[in-house]
Design a protein around this nucleic acid. Structure first.
Length: 905
DNA sequence: GAGGTGTTCCTTTTT
DNA sequence: GGAACACCTC
């Protein structure tokens, strides 16, 4: 591993800027050398970090690799600015993406400078700072200062109304899809009149633009803003009102941005407006722009929601003369883990290039990155569960272990397993507290109390609990409200005072509106928690759940109590609601020792002693959809995700892949991820999948291969082990495309080709186990033979990338029976056909094509033949209909399967 | 208006 | 397989 010594080299050809020079001068001018000497917080920094902290003047880009002390640099930098009296706390704008990051920064700066953090009003997330600015200038975009912030759910309901108002089929044009589109536009900073023509046409027969504009109008009339607006509006304000912008220019002396690689266009525009100026202060000198962005292009994993890596790649152009500082000295992981991660990420082309290194050498007790194989996802969960217990027995804390999955459906298997085992776990980033139904209902009540004009909140709870105020009544309210230009609540009150409704709904409306009026009158002089409780009681909401017999009702009641409790720290109901709108997460209890389960995405920024990375299979990871929709850049983002995953580990990274996984309810055979191929041999140990042979399934814990985790088993296996060979063999089988996820075929083909392989009885997997295991060895042997004939399946790091990409471009899977065209068909043709069907063609065509190819063939099996099936083992043919066969399996019972999955026994 | 049944979808997710 | 949603019936 090389150790770059020029830690502040520019990105590309830009003149080197003397790092520290200006800073030193500034320091001398303002704080004097004494400030430097006293600054013992600098002593703990390495030279690169120190440069990042001390280069206070002018634009700075800090490329901070995983585990190189990014947060430390950011916080120390702020502390340094404060301690050196370069700026007051209120003159520093520091933005993060998540509340968690903001909180952490606040805490850590507090450790340096004490109470001064309280005075850092401009440290927060993009959105919270956006709200703050917007509340100050709301009238400039036609809002009132007390505008409400809509969450996604409100947003979708609103859009649905608009779509229906246009007489569009809201099934054909779902509000959710439209919400995503609008989100995407806002991420790009585009107003309705600015969206590309193509986008505008794409939705609702060309009504996209019109709907977007109508939506914005609706928001304005509701005095509401969605998340995107929290940045869009400030941008519009800055552009239209230079005086406002100039005011912020005067205010902020330093701007710091965390996770710069994740910024989207809107955030970028917002930042640039704030940061790009010749600062004209009273003394009329142009000072340089002191913007400091910290990020890691290798950890950019949010492209799919609008993040533009390009922002970080382009930093020097945007801010000429920028100092670029690379942090490459890693303090987190062992050399094996770093070696594996670095080698993997080196397969990406679009990167600024960093090489992580560690000062710690390779110690004998450092474990290599492990690659493990399992038969199916159940075994994977079981084996990982047992390994966790082993580690626990050796004294490791569960809190130090994490399972990082690509997709959340993978979590379930682990949860099931851990529940059975009695192993503590916590799921991070599951359904968020404030997104729960009962919480949202309760919040809607509070919103209506605080803000009677909040129509969306009103609609949400007008008939919850049931009050006999159904569609008819609500429509009447709408009409009345619209006709008179008043909010729903007011309309309700008016209508309740007339004879327009029958007595029952009229009475209900009257009660409801009077209740809200009464609660509102209590706002000023009642403790907010008491009031909240009162509202839930008196509205009948609590009672509704008390009377609910369903299993989740008690939990919901608990959540409501928790909600009231979480309001304690706030001083008013409105204050609490503002917080909730921006902070959707709730703290988890950290006292419990538990394994963390989370997605790779939510693992960014975290670290664990031991990290389990299951599901490294083609199609799942890299995810098929990323490949289909993102092409090469999609693949690269997946690879960055893999990089993020591995670099979460301090001591141990354990990768897993399985041969069979159930996807959308169907069992599918899978092949190891190409990313496994891209790992360097030196730092990786391929574990033997001895569960295939051990007494697995004979019940009892450790039933399969207790030796597996013995010290001996950790010894010198490598790429020559049976495990690796099997992996390669399985991969080689890809040349004859017989796996669903490995192919580029769309969903439709998969569903049809594999439809009959689904397991109908839930008992099958268990009863089938022994068969599976015997079959496994068999199957691998077959694969090896095929591999011998079919050329090398090896893809070594240097060339593996290109090879794999090409190979993934295959045609529709065709069952391998009767010498079908599947394997012989030229890839290009297959791909073209697929791509056309997938991208443009009507779905019907796609279905027909495939259905035809599957259905017209005659079976080569006849009743009575003995057959072998990968999942169900051996059996005999009971009936034949075209290529669909009914098989009496020896262990799995009778199944209907596609011929393509059968072989001669 | 409520409750039961059919249909469709299925990556990642913050604010 | 299963959740979420839409539609349909009583």
């Amino acid at each position: 591993m090389t150790r770059p010594d020029d830690h502040s080299r520019p990105l590309a050809g830009a003149p080197e800027r003397p790092s520290g020079g200006i800073a030193a001068r500034a320091l001398a001018a303002r704080g004097g050398p004494a400030a430097m000497r006293e600054a013992n917080y600098l002593a703990n920094l390495n030279p690169e970090q120190r440069a990042a902290v001390e280069t206070t003047e002018g634009p700075v880009l800090v490329l901070a690799g995983a585990g190189t002390g990014k947060t430390r640099v950011l916080t120390t930098r702020i502390a340094h600015i404060l301690a050196s009296r370069l700026a007051y706390p209120s003159q520093i704008l520091a933005v993060t993406f998540t509340n968690k990051a903001a909180r952490e920064m606040k805490t850590r700066i507090g450790l340096f400078v004490g109470a001064e953090v309280e005075g850092m009003p401009w440290l927060g997330t993009f959105h919270s700072i956006g709200v703050k600015m917007l509340r100050r200038h709301a009238e400039l975009v036609g809002l009132k200062t007390n505008f409400t912030i809509l969450d996604t759910d409100d947003q979708i309901r609103l859009m649905k109304q608009l779509i229906q108002a246009e007489n569009l089929d809201d099934k054909r044009w779902p509000a959710r899809t439209f919400a995503n589109m609008v989100d995407g536009w806002k991420n790009k900073g585009l107003k309705p009149e600015e969206i590309p023509e193509g986008d505008a046409r794409a939705f609702a027969n060309g009504k996209g633009r019109q709907l977007y504009a109508a939506y914005q109008e609706r928001l304005k009339s509701l005095n509401a803003a969605d998340f995107g607006d929290l940045l869009m509006h400030p941008i519009a304000i800055f552009r239209a009102h230079p005086d406002v912008l100039a005011d912020y220019h005067r205010r902020f002396r330093y701007i710091l941005v965390d996770e710069y690689q994740d910024t989207n266009v809107a955030q970028y525009l917002w930042l640039r407006l704030l940061a790009q100026r010749s600062r004209r202060t009273g003394d009329d000198t142009d000072e340089p722009i002191n913007v400091c962005c910290v990020g890691d292009d290798d950890q950019s994993i949010y492209g799919w929601r609008g993040a533009e890596v390009d922002n970080i790649l382009r930093f020097e152009k945007d801010f000429p003369g920028a100092a670029v500082i690379r942090l490459e000295r890693n303090y987190r992981s062992t050399a094996h883990i770093l070696g594996a991660a670095s080698h993997l990420i080196a397969h990406n082309e679009d990167r600024l290039g960093k090489t992580l290194f560690t000062d710690a050498g390779i110690e004998p007790d450092h474990e290599k990155v492990e690659v493990n194989a399992a038969w199916d996802s159940e075994e994977e969960a079981r084996a990982i569960g047992e390994e966790i217990e082993q580690l626990q027995r050796r004294g490791h804390k569960l809190n130090d272990m994490a399972i990082l999955v690509r997709a959340s459906f993978q979590m379930r298997e682990f949860e099931d397993r851990f529940v059975t085992m009695g192993l503590n776990y916590r799921v991070i980033g599951g359904p968020r507290f404030y997104e729960r139904l009962e919480i949202r209902d309760a919040l809607a009540y509070f919103r209506c109390t605080v803000q009677p004009a909040d129509d969306l909140a009103f609609e949400r709870i007008v008939n919850t609990p049931k009050r006999g105020l159904g569609d008819t009544t609500v429509r009447l309210l709408h009409d009345h409200a619209r006709a008179k230009g008043i909010p729903l609540m007011a309309a309700a009150a008016e209508i309740a005072a007339t004879e327009e409704l029958k007595s029952k709904p009229r009475r209900a409306l009257d009660d409801l509106t009077k209740n809200f009026a009464r609660w509102a009158s209590l706002l000023a002089n009642t403790k907010h928690t008491d009031l909240a409780e009162m509202i839930l009681e008196e509205s009948g909401y609590t009672e509704m759940w008390q009377n609910d017999r369903s299993a989740e009702a008690p939990g919901r009641l608990d959540n409501l109590k928790e909600l009231i409790r979480s309001m304690e720290p706030y001083d008013s109901l409105p204050g609490f609601l503002e917080h909730v709108a921006l902070v959707m997460d709730a703290e988890q209890n950290a006292d419990l020792d538990a394994v963390s389960i989370m997605t790779l995405h939510s693992a960014k920024g975290l670290e664990f002693e031991t990290v389990f990375l299951p599901g490294w299979e083609e199609g799942l990871f890299p995810h098929q959809r990323s490949l289909d929709e993102g092409g090469r850049s999609g693949l690269e983002e997946e690879r960055r995700l893999a990089y993020v995953g591995i670099t979460r580990a301090k001591q141990r990274a354990k990768l897993w892949f399985v041969s069979n996984r159930r996807i959308h309810g169907l069992w599918q055979s899978t092949i190891p991820s190409r990313f496994l191929d891209e790992l360097p041999e030196d730092h990786v140990e391929v574990k033997e999948a001895n569960s295939s042979y051990g007494g697995y399934g004979r019940g009892g814990m450790g039933g399969y291969g207790a030796s597996r985790w013995d010290a001996d088993a950790f010894s010198t296996t490598s790429y020559q082990t049976p495990g690796w060979k099997r992996a390669q063999a399985a991969r080689a089988a890809e040349t004859r495309p017989d796996t669903a996820w490995g192919s580029r075929s769309g969903h439709k083909e998969r569903a049809i080709s594999y439809g009959d392989q689904g397991v109908s009885g839930s008992d099958v997997r268990r009863s089938n186990r022994e068969t599976d295991l015997a079959a496994k060895a068999d199957r691998y042997a077959r694969m090896s033979e095929e591999r011998a004939q079919g050329g090398s399946g090896t893809a070594m790091p240097s060339n593996g990338f290109a090879g794999r990409l090409e190979r993934s471009g295959r045609g529709v899977y065709e069952p391998a029976s009767g010498g079908g065209r599947g394997s012989n068909r030229p890839p290009s043709r297959g791909l073209g056909l697929n791509a056309a069907a997938r991208d443009g063609g009507p779905r019907e065509i796609e279905g027909t094509l495939v259905a035809k190819s599957v259905a017209t063939e005659e079976s080569r099996f006849k009743v009575g033949d003995r057959v072998f099936h990968l999942k169900f083992g051996n059996g005999s043919v009971a009936a034949v209909e075209g290529n669909k066969l009914t098989i009496d399996f020896d262990r799995a019972g009778q199944k209907r399967v596609l011929e393509g999955f059968l072989q001669d026994a």
